[in-house]
């Protein structure tokens, strides 16, 4: 139990001392994960809604695939992105390996299926309720798509939060494509992994506490926004 006490002490010391290294790591973590989730949302919402609304050959297979991709192993995504971005790979000339951009790309790949799959479910359920009304007003699936996304916005916040949770918690992908380079690509999770490998479990757990607190804060903020807005809009 001494480890837990030391962990909380370490976490408190880091936060209370405004440790600049910690601030940098936290900042990069948020930057990478929030941007990745933003991009994944921009891609995932329309894709999910389109899969929900349109009927096309292979749709069922796509739905199953999307659901399965929610559980994509981060290490595999990391490896794929590494092979793509490596100098020997097809996008090697861009020189993106071991940069925050590479980490964002990997997290977008991880998070987009989650947001798309959850969006599909939300929009499909809404469409059951709305279809007659929307068709009657003259809106087929294509024109109803954005209205449905907008009306599902409170539920979709949960989908986006699920994506954020995944992005901020994963270590496998960012470790491989980011390289855990000090001051460049070191984020909360890779820093934790590094401290574990140094055997400094208290510091690792302290970082973990900071990460969980951040995650809790983001979720609480989103929850408050959602609840307030939902009470207002019904």
């Amino acid at each position: 139990m001494t480890d837990f006490g030391a962990a909380f002490a370490a976490a408190f010391a880091m936060v209370a001392g405004f440790d600049p290294d910690l601030a940098e790591i936290v900042g990069l973590s948020l930057q990478v994960s929030l941007l990745a989730v933003g991009l994944a949302t921009v891609i995932g919402l329309p894709v999910g809604a389109a899969v929900a609304l349109f009927r096309f050959p292979g749709r069922t297979a796509l739905v199953v695939a999307l659901n399965a991709l929610m559980g994509l192993p981060p290490v595999v995504v990391g490896l794929i992105v590494y092979l793509l971005l490596s100098r020997a790979g097809p996008f090697g000339v861009l020189g993106l390996l071991f940069t925050p951009t590479a980490m964002i790309i990997a997290q977008v790949l991880l998070v987009t299926p989650i947001i798309a799959a959850l969006t599909r479910q939300v929009v499909e359920d809404l469409w059951v309720e709305y279809e007659d009304q929307m068709r009657s007003l003259g809106a087929g699936p294509a024109r109803a798509l954005t209205a449905l996304l907008w009306d599902g916005r409170f539920t979709l916040i949960t989908a986006v939060l699920a994506g954020f949770g995944r992005a901020s918690a994963e270590v496998g992908a960012v470790m491989i494509v980011g390289g855990n380079i000090d001051h460049v690509t070191r984020v909360m999770t890779t820093a934790i992994a590094l401290e574990v490998s140094k055997g400094d479990l208290a510091l690792a757990l302290g970082l973990g506490i900071v990460l969980m607190t951040l995650s809790l804060a983001v979720n609480a903020a989103a929850f408050l926004v959602k609840e307030t807005a939902q009470r207002h809009y019904g």
């Binding site: 309720e129 709305y130 007659d132 009304q133 929307m134 009657s136 007003l137 003259g138 209205a147 907008w150 009306d151 916005r153 409170f154 809009y233 019904g234």
Partner: peptide, 17 residues
């Protein structure tokens, strides 16, 4: 003809706006 007719349902669906 679709643009010249309308329908009201037993339970109206209101958009969240």
């Amino acid at each position: 003809p679709a643009s010249r007719q309308a329908m009201v349902f037993q339970r109206p669906v209101m958009l969240r706006r």
